[in-house]
Nucleic acid binder design. Structure first.
Lengths: 234, 234
DNA sequence: ACAAAAGTGTTTCTCCTACACCCATGC
DNA sequence: GCATGGGTGTAGGAGAAACACTTTTGT
């Protein structure tokens, strides 16, 4: 079969913005590059798109290489296409953001990539246009989380109300009234109360909850207005 | 400077999903291909990414070639990367959706591309994965339009309330109460009443309004909840 | 007993929703 | 004078926001 012979072909990469939540802080997984260019600097995890891969395949591959995780929440952030974004050679990057359960990750951590979790407000300066990618990913997540319950993707199997509250407060960079928050949360029927309590963070202890996965799936698209006046959505 | 010599390079294209509104119907601008493959079939307008172009440049170039328009609302829809999406050769496509003032377009129409506006509900079957692109673009616009006043990008300089109402009804595939709609619209201070009336569509005539561009810019990010229960947002 | 975090109820107010009639004009 | 689409107001209800005290338990 004939080809589009006169057209230019380009390098295409994927970069993954990986978010996690340890129960207190929202975090980002970064790697320290042990190769040039920009060796020693912090960076998102990425990789080139291979001939037999879709971009989504590639992002999942990269994610699995770094975290060992599969079937995680993954969404296209945006394409970054500035001509000189990579100093070695023009490379288009398709950014993907992922929401992972940080606890699942820890079990399978590999140090091969010098990976480290950074609190979202303490992310170092990153290579190339990776700072922009992170910024865009934060915006997108905030946007989506105001309308859909995606933040549950960050939580472990059992979690407490104060934890979810902290998570929402960090994602939306705000403070929320815990009474109103709980009421609204319960009204979604998304969470199921457990018998046990988490006694690590308080003397009284906070009840554990589990996500009702059936409700999660069925209500995913109709979770509107959970955050009623999300400011600064872009 | 050295290159990433071992990596594969790919063709990258942009495709534009161009929306317009003629005062009654939401429309999509399509071209009839006069070249292979799929000659004679309907398609989105697209083009290959050139070496010295960013994807956004390319989308703007394609848009200008077809419509003569510049500085139009343009946003990345998504990357489409299925390996076999183009039967000739693997090509990654970055889809962009544009909202244009169809009246500006008409003045500059070129027939070179056999371009035609189709009512959104009467779009023919398109080549490759272009049907999916249109679907995704509709979703994205719906999503965004529920929170931001982007639909004004589709309106001519002077427009009437019944026209905006029709536009919203078509984008959200619903019917809206005109009293509640007007009230909400006025409360945004986005539109300025004119003296003249549009007498084309009724005997009484409907007052023209203009967009208050200063308010539009300043309130763009804070237009939340204009559509209070948008269904089927994805 | 006290410090520290968890958990819970009520009132107010805003905004959404539902709903129906008069108006201006061309024919 | 009548048909057509444009324009306006109100009342009721649901949900958001504001707000403070009691509970549990480890030390």
């Amino acid at each position: 079969m004939q080809k589009y012979s006169k057209q230019t072909r380009l390098l295409v990469a994927v970069d993954c913005i990986i978010f996690g939540f340890d129960g207190e802080k929202l975090k980002l997984l970064l790697i320290q590059r042990d190769f040039e260019p920009e060796k020693g600097k912090w960076s998102l995890m990425g990789g080139f798109l291979k001939p037999n891969e879709t971009p989504e395949n590639a992002a999942n591959r990269v994610l699995k290489e770094l975290t060992g995780l599969e079937n995680v929440y993954l969404e296209q952030t945006e394409v970054f296409g500035d001509i000189h974004r990579d100093p070695i050679e023009r490379t288009l990057s398709i950014a993907y953001h992922a929401l992972v359960d940080i606890h699942q990750y820890e079990k399978q951590l590999s140090n091969d990539y010098h990976a480290e979790w950074f609190e979202i407000n303490q992310v170092p300066n990153l290579i190339f246009d990776h700072n922009q990618m992170v910024k865009k990913a934060k915006e997108k997540i905030r946007y989506k989380a105001a309308l859909h319950p995606i933040l549950f993707e960050l939580l472990p199997e059992k979690f407490t109300i104060p934890q979810i509250l902290a998570l929402y407060e960090q994602v939306f960079d705000t403070t929320l009234d815990k009474r109103n928050f709980s009421r609204k949360l319960f009204s979604t029927s998304l969470i199921i109360k457990q018998q046990e309590k988490d006694k690590l963070n308080s003397k009284k202890g906070a009840f554990y909850y589990k996500l009702d996965k059936a409700t999660y799936k069925s209500k995913f698209e109709n979770f509107f207005h959970f955050i009623s006046n999300p400011t600064e959505l872009k």
